[in-house]
């Protein structure tokens, strides 16, 4: 199995990236090399092995549902590329 330019287009779309034709060719080659190397994992029988998503024996870390002060709006907006009335402004979602 090998990654085609069409696959690269599909993945780039999922990842919200626009790639140049040169990038597409390079990434197709490099991803093929990396994934070919990753196929090494298939040498191992993992049918009866549990997956590890992280190493700590903790799940569902909860805290008390208490009201706490939130950030001042002017601080939150400090890095906004565009804002209006304390809200992030973006191009129209619907035409």
């Amino acid at each position: 199995m090998s990654i085609t330019i069409k696959d690269v287009d599909h993945v780039a779309n999922l990842a919200r990236l626009t790639l140049t034709d040169e990038e597409k060719t390079t990434f197709a080659d490099q991803l093929n090399a990396i994934l070919k190397y990753a196929e090494k994992l298939n040498e191992l029988d993992t049918d009866n092995v549990e997956a590890t998503s992280h190493v700590l024996p903790i799940t569902n870390v909860l805290r008390e549902d208490e009201t706490r002060p939130s950030w001042p709006i002017e601080d939150v907006m400090r890095n906004a590329p565009d804002e209006e009335d304390g809200q992030f402004r973006v191009p129209a979602v619907l035409e």
């Binding site: 994934l35 990753a38 191992l44 993992t46 092995v49 549990e50 997956a51 590890t52 998503s53």
Partner: peptide, 11 residues
Amino acid sequence: YYLKAQKVRTL
């Protein structure tokens, strides 16, 4: 790929 790698992580 992803699930396989998580299992290998266990090993």
